[in-house]
């Protein structure tokens, strides 16, 4: 089976994010970069599938030179090879342009199933997997918490508000991974050593023959709106303090 896992390098969840003074982006100094947590679920599922059905896993990523660390992490977890799409015109690209770059690279290799994280925790757009599926003209199952692949089809569980859908699709398809799908493995030391020798193709936009004309643009970034300072309910008696909060919620906030 030919399995593809798309990954993105993002700031660690604990990273302090500071907007540049001109609002053009974030300050990248001091940030610890990691594999997007949702992509880790995708890589893990790709590896589990390979272990069950045989085949190989190709990791694909778009990003600057540092992205190679994240590709090597996936290779150390057990993927066979990587494709690194590195082009300054694609750094911080919008979802369509990113998906278009991934699609161009993936079209050049055989694929039966493609994993993406359901969203990346930096831009929080959650679009790339679906756009990729559309550009490859294959079905999608998004935000998936359980997957079973066999007999040329995939069965996926997708929680929605108040219910769960069980989806069935032919292959090839795109699966976007949600937390709960699996527990990603850590790279082993021998895995890390082996990863250094695994092949990674580096390509730019021209080599892929794609347009880098953006479809959406971040005009400016701002810090989150400040909330007005709250009230701390003082006192010794728990019952009195609780009653005061309930009173405020009813009379001042009017939310109960």
């Amino acid at each position: 089976m030919n399995i593809v896992a798309c990954v993105k390098q993002v700031p660690d969840t604990e990273a302090l994010i500071k907007v540049k003074p001109d609002g053009s982006g974030i300050e990248e100094g001091g940030i610890k970069w990691v594999m997007n947590p949702y992509d880790e679920f995708g890589v893990e599922e790709a590896l589990k599938l390979k272990e069950k059905l045989g085949g190989e896993v190709t990791v694909v990523s778009v990003g600057p030179a540092r992205t190679m660390e994240t590709i090597r992490t996936a290779l150390a977890m057990g993927a066979e090879k990587g494709i690194h799409i590195d082009d300054p015109a694609l750094y911080n690209a919008d979802a369509y342009t990113t998906a278009n770059a991934l699609a161009a690279a993936i079209k050049e290799i055989p694929y039966d199933i493609i994993f993406c994280g359901q969203r990346a925790i930096d831009g929080d757009m959650g679009q790339v997997g679906s756009i990729l599926a559309e550009l490859l003209d294959i079905p999608q199952c998004t935000i998936v918490t359980k997957l079973d692949v066999g007999d040329g089809k995939a069965t996926a569980v997708k929680p929605i508000e108040g219910a769960q859908l069980v989806l069935e699709t032919s292959l090839p398809c795109v699966i976007t991974a949600q937390k709960g799908l699996n527990e990603p493995r850590y790279a082993s030391l021998p895995g890390i050593m082996k990863a250094k020798k695994k092949p990674v193709d580096v390509k730019n936009a021209a080599a892929l023959g794609i347009s880098v004309e953006p479809k959406a643009k971040i005009e400016k970034m701002t810090p989150p709106p400040a909330r007005p300072p709250g009230k701390i309910i003082e006192g010794e008696d728990p019952a009195a303090k609780a009653a005061e909060v309930i009173r405020l919620l009813r009379e001042e906030a009017k939310v109960i």
Binding site: P11, L16, I17, G123, K215, A216, K217, E219, K220, M221
Partner: peptide, 16 residues
């Protein structure tokens, strides 16, 4: 829209 899980907000325009 919130980005970086609400640690910043972005103002987005769409050219498509």
């Amino acid at each position: 829209r919130p980005m970086y899980a609400g640690k910043t907000f972005g103002e987005v325009s769409v050219s498509g």
